[in-house]
């Protein structure tokens, strides 16, 4: 309980110089600038080559159409018009928004609960439990999905046996109605530990004198947690909402694997990324897939900007 100086929101290093407008920069500052450029250049080259260039190429590709009979031709925004009118694509978008809309708040609440317990230091073996909760994050998602697939298997999974034993007959965790709830459970299992560690670190950085002042004022513990600690870790929570939303929008592995255990629930357009995958890889329509990927990226950017705007507005208060 001594590392109170660490604050995640504070910049770790202050910029070497903040040159004023029209002021001549010193030789030192210019040398520094050149050194900075030298440090940044390798990253920028690689970033351009593996990120910007493929992105540009995808946008370029999305303006063309290749047919098995007739070859490749410029088609303008025809692919985008196909995507925007595709009911299946938007059903998938809505599905992942529902998924994220439930999974992220529930997971963050659980993660905050455990982070608070660890932060209070009331649990014995705290570091051990932190490590245990973190383990699911270290398991590759493919592996954990396979594992959950067997646990939730319609005929022989122990979870279905459990439901049968308590009176729910013919219960199927992977049926059409329960596939999303089941994936929410899996995602919560996978990601709570990671979110818990981030929140724990943020809680640790809440200044101790604030808490001490509250204690001296006889503030009840729950008020300290909800009214002082929670608001002070809001930047971390918003960052986690942001990261988890991007992850949720790209849901792919869990439904794809669970499809092996239950036929006919996960369709080839079930989530936007599954839709992109089957369009590009299975249907061989790479350019249409590129257009879908661009549209999905725009949706994600829009959600991100909205959440950053929310963050900015809350800061001003």
């Amino acid at each position: 309980m001594s590392e109170t100086a660490l604050r995640p929101s504070a910049p770790a290093v202050t910029p070497p110089s903040t040159p004023g407008k029209r002021r001549r920069r010193s030789a030192y500052a210019r040398r520094q600038g050149r050194a900075g450029l030298a440090f940044v250049t390798p990253f920028m080259i690689i970033f351009t080559l593996i990120m910007i260039a493929p992105l540009g190429y995808a946008v370029y590709q999305s303006l063309y159409t290749t047919k098995l009979i007739g070859g490749t031709s410029f088609s303008g925004f025809a692919n985008y018009s196909t995507v925007l009118q595709s009911g299946d694509f938007w059903d998938g978008v809505i599905r992942v928004i529902i998924f994220g809309g439930i999974q992220i708040p529930v997971m963050l609440a659980i993660a905050f609960f455990f982070a608070t317990i660890f932060d209070l230091g009331v649990a014995r073996w705290g570091p051990l439990f932190r490590a245990v909760y973190f383990i699911p994050f270290a398991v590759p998602i493919v592996v954990s999905s396979v594992m959950w697939g067997f646990l939730l298997d319609p005929a022989y999974g122990p979870f279905n046996h459990l439901m049968n034993a308590i009176g729910f007959h013919n219960f199927n965790w992977l049926s059409g109605n329960l596939m999303i709830p089941s994936i929410i459970i899996i995602a919560i299992w996978e990601w709570t530990g990671y979110n818990c560690i981030i929140l724990y670190t943020a809680l640790k950085s809440v200044p101790r004198d604030v808490i001490e002042a509250a204690i001296l004022d006889d503030t009840p513990l729950w008020r300290i947690i909800v009214r002082i600690k929670l608001p002070m870790v809001r930047p971390a929570i918003i960052m986690l909402v942001f990261i988890n939303t991007i992850g949720a929008m790209q849901l792919f592995i869990e439904p794809t694997i669970l499809n092996n255990y239950q036929a006919g629930v996960v369709t080839n357009t079930w989530t936007p990324v599954i839709d992109i995958y089957s369009t590009a890889i299975s249907n061989g329509q790479y350019q249409l897939g590129a257009a879908m990927a661009v549209v999905l990226a725009v949706i994600i950017v829009a959600i991100s900007v909205a959440s950053l705007g929310f963050r900015g507005r809350r800061r001003e208060q």
């Binding site: 098995l68 036929a263 006919g264 629930v265 369709t267 080839n268 089957s278 299975s282 249907n283 061989g284």
Partner: peptide
């Protein structure tokens, strides 16, 4: 001459 499309779409439609 596009069997991967037939198989993926078919898995969904017949599913």
């Amino acid at each position: 001459p596009f069997m991967t499309q037939v198989l993926t779409q078919g898995a969904t439609t017949f599913g």
